[in-house]
């Protein structure tokens, strides 16, 4: 099918199989390899991307369903502050879960701000529960997420 969508602010038109995974479109067709595949079944969150502002596992999203949508991957704009918080807290160890974590952290931090909610630790844990990390024990990641949500833009 002809697929039209916006990726990281750029309008694209591609010819793809409708059931091709968004993950494969991004990684293989468009060579944006910051989005990682950890499990291929929506369990680990390493392939998290934003579709119309909502975080999804790109391994579960067929290309047909992002037609007309705005897709943002870790290569997109707007992640700078979250990245800085991750660096400062040493929240990236092996780094393979990091892009997905950062995508989810950004969405959560923006939601806290939008809803005027004081970001809390339990809330951060819930928000990041779909992103598995095996290196850190999550402590540094949660600290980075709280920093990111507390800082003002």
């Amino acid at each position: 099918m002809k697929l039209q969508f916006t990726l990281n602010g750029e309008r694209l038109e591609l010819d793809v199989e409708p059931l091709r995974r968004l993950l494969d479109v991004v990684r293989d067709d468009l060579a944006l390899t910051g989005t990682k595949e950890g499990c291929g079944e929506g369990e680990c969150g390493a392939c998290s991307v934003l579709v119309d502002g909502v975080v999804v596992n790109s391994c579960l999203v067929p290309a047909s369903q992002v037609d007309g949508c705005e897709v943002v991957t870790i290569e997109g704009a707007g992640f700078e502050r979250v990245r800085q918080c991750f660096l400062e807290q040493g929240a990236a160890q092996c780094g393979i879960c990091t892009p997905g974590m950062i995508v989810m952290t950004r969405a959560w931090a923006e939601r806290c701000r939008r809803e005027g909610r004081e970001p809390g630790l339990d809330d951060a844990r819930t928000a990041l529960a779909g992103n598995l990390c095996r290196c850190t024990g999550y402590g540094a990641i949660l600290r980075a997420a709280l920093d990111a949500a507390k800082e003002r833009p």
Partner: peptide, 13 residues
Amino acid sequence: GPGKVAGTTRYVA
């Protein structure tokens, strides 16, 4: 760190 948080670090895949 910078490559990992930017997603530019290349893993074998």
